[in-house]
């Protein structure tokens, strides 16, 4: 901190002041005084005008339970598990890759082996337990991307609120069931 070495800079020295570029700060008029009070009054009136204009424009609310915002086709809502349309077998083979990809760790898969006479899925194994804890899910869609069989996709349903956390753990049966289409889809170009 000694200034004897001559290398330290002195903020008051002329050379220092010359070396820096001084920018004048743009300031508004003085807020005090009669002028300030007058301007404040004017601004207040302008504010009143602005709010009144909003009143006249009327509400923009979408009244949610009665009206719904349409979602885009790629909207990531509640998951769906799929079956093959021809054979009716589940596409999911219980490989757990979705669980591995899940950053929220909300998917639990317990696999089991198919019995030849009573097949559940197309492969050797199937998901005996497939649960998604939707209270944890962040709807990132990684499970959909990770799935090697397109067995899980993200649907459009976003109405999943419930009264019990336990009810938010969706089982395989719930995910396989055809979901009630409650959400309008945005049409082309909308």
């Amino acid at each position: 901190m000694s200034d004897g070495d001559g290398n330290g800079f002195d903020p008051k020295s002329a050379s220092y002041l010359d070396s820096i570029e001084v920018i004048e700060v743009q300031r508004g008029p003085n807020p005090g005084g009669v002028g300030g009070a007058y301007r404040a009054f004017g601004e207040t009136l302008r504010g009143l005008k602005t709010t009144m204009a909003r009143l006249i424009e009327g509400p923009l609310t979408i009244e949610y339970p009665e009206e719904k915002t349409p979602v885009y086709p790629r909207f990531r809502g509640r998951h769906k598990l799929h079956k093959f349309e021809d054979s009716g077998l589940e596409k999911c083979v219980g490989c757990s890759l979705c669980a591995a990809a899940c950053p929220a760790d909300c998917i639990r898969v317990v696999a089991a082996e198919n019995i030849p006479g009573d097949r559940v899925s197309a492969g050797e194994r199937y998901a005996a337990v497939y649960e998604i804890n939707l209270s944890r899910c962040i709807f990132c869609g990684y499970c959909e991307i990770a799935c090697p069989f397109d067995a899980i996709t993200m649907g459009h349903d976003y109405e999943m609120a419930d009264y019990d956390r336990g009810d938010l753990i969706f089982t395989k049966e719930m995910l396989l069931a055809e979901p009630i289409e409650r959400t309008p889809l945005k049409s082309e170009g909308e």
């Binding site: 709010t51 009144m52 909003r54 009143l55 424009e57 009327g58 509400p59 923009l60 609310t61 009244e63």
Partner: peptide, 9 residues
């Protein structure tokens, strides 16, 4: 009224 002033009901 406050609602209307704020574009809502």
């Amino acid at each position: 009224l406050i609602g209307r002033f704020q574009h809502r009901y």
